[in-house]
């Protein structure tokens, strides 16, 4: 019991934004996780009798134009969106750490070269860059992950580089150099763990951008292809019935906003805490 109150005290000490964000993220991840295993209806099953049905106890978010249960599809669609965002951030952060670490640690000509290329890539909006890459790789779940991942590398590379430049001159890094540690060891064993604080908050913010970018691409019809559900696709389908049944678009859009706000509150909260 004492442990529980101590936990509660600790929880209360956290910034307000972080608490809200963690709760929201927790709720969305819980629903998405459950949705992988069980949904109220089969998200693909069509029911002609309940086409564009409104919100009711039977269908808590109503039905779409084919009579599919929107709530089940939102669960499935969020899972797809989250999967793509995770993959994107995975590629982005790995590439970003590699490029940023080399540029920041070694400096000099290598830094100039990598960062100018990086700046050029950063000059394009990442969605636009992803569009170009998608036209190269084709559409589909994995192609999107790859293209968006590459498009997200520059922004991470820049953050990591800044951190490495900051830590490069620290006494303990000099000390590591002094005992004969190799450059790779210094970069990835001595410096990298120190950058986690900044990385975590930028990962969460990047996660938001990835969710939005995926939704945007799917909305344009070049993202996730049917029969896969995704929040962006559902929004673009709901657009046609915006006036006859606004509940459809509102439910899907609301879910998207809920997920994004959860992550961005957490990111902000973590950044502010330390």
């Amino acid at each position: 019991m004492g442990k529980l109150t101590a936990r509660l005290e600790e929880w209360k000490k956290k910034p307000f934004l972080l608490r809200i964000g963690l709760i929201m993220t927790g709720i969305s991840i819980f629903f998405i996780f459950v949705g992988i295993f069980v949904t109220p209806y089969d998200p693909e099953a069509m029911d002609a009798s309940s086409k564009l049905a409104g919100i009711s106890f039977k269908h808590i978010m109503g039905c779409d134009n084919f009579g599919r249960d929107v709530f089940s599809r939102v669960l499935k669609g969020s899972a797809t969106t989250l999967f793509i965002a995770t993959g994107t951030i995975g590629i982005g952060i790995t590439g970003g750490i590699l490029i940023g670490a080399f540029a920041g640690y070694f400096g000099g000509v290598l830094d100039e070269l990598l960062m100018r290329i990086n700046d050029a890539a950063l000059a394009f909006p990442s969605v636009l860059l992803a569009l170009v890459l998608i036209s190269l790789f084709g559409t589909g779940k994995y192609q999107i992950i790859l293209s968006m991942g590459i498009a997200f590398i520059p922004s991470f590379a820049r953050i990591v580089r800044g951190e490495f430049i900051r830590y490069r001159e620290m006494d303990y890094v000099q000390q590591a150099k002094l005992i004969g540690a190799g450059s790779f060891r210094i970069m990835f064993v001595h410096i990298l763990p120190n950058t986690f604080r900044v990385l975590v908050s930028s990962i969460l913010i990047g996660f938001n951008n990835a969710v939005l970018a995926e939704a945007g691409l799917s909305f344009l019809g070049i993202g996730v292809q049917p029969p896969d559900a995704s929040l962006g696709r559902m929004l673009s389908e709901a657009q046609a019935y915006l006036f006859s049944r606004p509940g459809y678009a509102l439910c899907v859009g609301g879910t998207l906003i809920f997920i994004i706000l959860g992550f961005s509150f957490s990111g902000e909260g973590i950044g502010r805490k330390v």
């Binding site: 006494d171 303990y172 000390q175 590591a176 763990p193 120190n194 986690f196």
Partner: peptide, 8 residues
């Protein structure tokens, strides 16, 4: 104070 890595 600064010669030791704070995360190790």
């Amino acid at each position: 104070m600064t010669s030791l890595n704070p995360v190790k």
